[in-house]
């Protein structure tokens, strides 16, 4: 395939993702608002969106820091949240063309949404993954930056119920995972561990300890 043809197919991928652009845009704005409320700083928040490009892990890390958790707890929460990308990236390993460097760069465009879109036809398509990933990346970074400005203008975020809104955000991200019995059990166990540990351990520790609930996966 010529590079001109590849560029053309990537443009089709961008177009595939356009109707879904509003969700990620608002998600990015929310992250900017949260980061601002947590005192992360506009530059740091935007750099994080540009280098991590994985919403839930960014929300997780900032939430832990905001609650007074340690650096290690924040890192572990985000790393645990993003470990799923190992499994996800293996499913699309064979669709990336070119040498190692190119594959390294293009694989960064794997996010939940671009991955899901690229597999809609029943087999994973490189052009849709890269095209939609590019669009989502630009939206994510730009909306984070705008969100930090918006956060400044909003004033006291908790008075507006934003703290509850971010709990609802995690709940909405959780909902699609709660299909199998095992996922429900693991999530319930994690919630239980967090509830029990919150009054007796420093902030951030309950979340990291709750990760142990994934060991339910070892059960037959």
């Amino acid at each position: 395939m010529s590079s001109g043809e590849q560029a053309h197919r990537v443009r089709d991928g961008v177009r595939t993702a356009l109707p879904l652009a509003l969700g990620p845009l608002l998600f990015g704005l929310s992250f900017g608002v949260l980061a601002d409320a947590a005192g992360i700083g506009a530059v740091a928040a935007t750099v994080m969106s540009a280098t991590t490009f994985a919403g839930s892990a960014q929300f997780g890390a900032v939430t832990v820091l905001d609650a007074g958790g340690t650096v290690v707890a924040a890192i572990m929460a985000a790393v645990f949240l993003n470990a799923r990308y190992v499994a996800i990236s293996v499913t699309v390993a064979s669709i990336f063309p070119g040498g190692r460097t190119r594959r390294l760069v293009e694989s960064q465009l794997i996010v939940d949404e671009s991955w899901a879109l690229s597999g809609r036809s029943g087999r994973f398509e490189w052009s849709i993954l890269v095209g939609s990933g590019l669009l989502l990346y630009v939206l994510w970074v730009a909306s984070t930056a705008v969100g930090t400005v918006l956060g400044d203008a909003l004033g006291d975020p908790n008075g507006l119920g934003l703290d509850a809104a971010f709990a609802a955000l995690f709940l909405t991200l959780l909902a699609p995972y709660l299909r199998g019995r095992r996922a429900i059990q693991a999530a319930a166990l994690a919630a239980g561990i967090t509830l029990v540990l919150t009054p007796v351990t420093p902030a951030g520790v309950p979340i990291v300890a709750a990760a142990a609930a994934c060991l339910i996966g070892l059960k037959r």
């Binding site: 959780l174 166990l189 994690a190």
Partner: peptide, 11 residues
């Protein structure tokens, strides 16, 4: 299971 577990803890 890691993602649902961490999300539940964050909720």
């Amino acid at each position: 299971l890691l993602a649902p577990v961490m999300l539940a803890a964050l909720v």
